[in-house]
Amino acid sequence: MTSGEKYSATIYLNNLLAFFVYRFLRLFFRKQSTFSKNMVFINTGQIGDITISSLLLENNLPSTYNYHFIILKRFRQVFNDYSGKTQIIELDEKKYKFNPLYRTSFIKTIRNLKPAKCYNLTSARGISNDELALLSGAEETICFSNSWKNLKKLFSKKMDSYYERVLYPDEQNEYKRHINLLNREFGIPEEEIFVRNRFMFKSALRDQMNYITLAPFSSEPLRCWPLEKFANICEMLKGKCEVLILGSNEQYEICDQIFSGMEHVMNLCGKNNIPEAATLISKALLHLGNDSGLTHVALKMGTPVAAIIGGYYFGKFFPFENKEIKAKYFFKEMECFGCEWNCIYDRAYCVTDVGVDEVFRYIEAYLS
């Protein structure tokens, strides 16, 4: 059995187990008969995913409902500055997976809201994620079409069939799906929809400084442009502007090594939470990074972006163009685009082969 076949078999078995768990829980948690004026949104994705879904918090939703937004507990800091009307509900994913008491208690918490509608906005929907929406007891459960390959078609179609509505199967881009949602479900004219920050990061005031921000990492290694190439860009920027490196505490040491000796580069990995990083990004001349959560934050803050992206799910998140956004995306086009990280090569050439000179020329032209 090849590694690819083992990978597919593992996914199938995991989904099969999750499906039986869902069917078992469904025996005890059926659709409710009475409903309130509560509406629930679910996105259990990464920072980039919930940054996109925060479009719902940036725009004035009808006052007919009370809104609740379920996210993963480890990303709660993204909403530290948020003081809007939508209630943030934290989900501890490890407890939900391994602790049956927590799992049933969390489902009951959602059901106690007696939601009229429950929208599952998660991009990479899995069965356990679908379970949250489908067991919510909502009068109407709605989800985005699942265009990913991480579910076998058997399970994907089956889980879709449990929803009352599956939205936008012909639209791949997640930003555009959310814009369609605001327009078609909530009646907000498309030209009035805000993509940029209004309420999420209140401390981020646009006061441009002479630096660029650099986020050289991503949650998936295949998305990352080589650190040495980022270092080359920084060397070439000497005398033109300062560079602030953003990342996690675990990434501090490697950045200290790669970018050592560059007096115009400041290593801030692990020094800022997401709202603080958003403030720094909002004041930058430009943000440079990979396909990562901080690139989504930069778009949200209205900061010009230079992003190195790959073809693993090209078009699903990036490239994204909008009248509020100034962005340039760099990638090497290949026939294997759409692999969803199941790369057939020893490395992701669509990312790694993007040239330093090409990226630098754009940054230099923009700064001048």
Score class of each variant (00 low, 15 high):
93 E>C: 08
85 K>R: 11
44 T>F: 00
60 N>A: 12
113 L>Y: 06
32 Q>M: 14
12 Y>K: 03
15 N>A: 00
118 C>A: 12
17 L>C: 08
51 T>R: 05
41 F>M: 03
33 S>E: 15
83 S>H: 12
43 N>S: 10
18 A>W: 02
118 C>W: 02
121 L>N: 02
101 L>N: 03
75 F>T: 05
134 L>S: 04
77 Q>K: 11
44 T>E: 00
38 N>C: 13
107 I>D: 03
32 Q>L: 15
51 T>Q: 08
102 Y>N: 03
116 A>C: 10
74 R>M: 06
22 Y>T: 07
70 I>Q: 00
123 S>A: 09
57 L>Q: 02
60 N>R: 10
64 T>K: 14
77 Q>D: 14
72 L>H: 07
32 Q>F: 11
81 D>A: 01
54 S>A: 12
133 A>S: 15
124 A>P: 00
92 D>A: 10
82 Y>M: 03
62 P>C: 06
30 R>K: 15
17 L>A: 10
101 L>G: 00
80 N>L: 10
122 T>H: 11
62 P>Q: 05
91 L>I: 08
100 P>N: 11
27 L>V: 14
61 L>A: 05
77 Q>E: 13
43 N>W: 02
17 L>W: 07
54 S>W: 04
125 R>G: 10
56 L>K: 03
86 T>P: 07
132 L>P: 04
79 F>M: 05
16 L>M: 10
27 L>G: 06
38 N>Q: 12
34 T>I: 15
75 F>N: 12
99 N>A: 12
122 T>L: 05
122 T>C: 06
102 Y>Q: 07
48 G>W: 01
91 L>R: 05
114 K>Q: 13
124 A>Q: 10
63 S>L: 14
86 T>L: 06
44 T>V: 11
96 Y>V: 10
72 L>Q: 14
39 M>S: 09
36 S>I: 11
12 Y>G: 00
17 L>V: 14
107 I>H: 07
59 N>S: 09
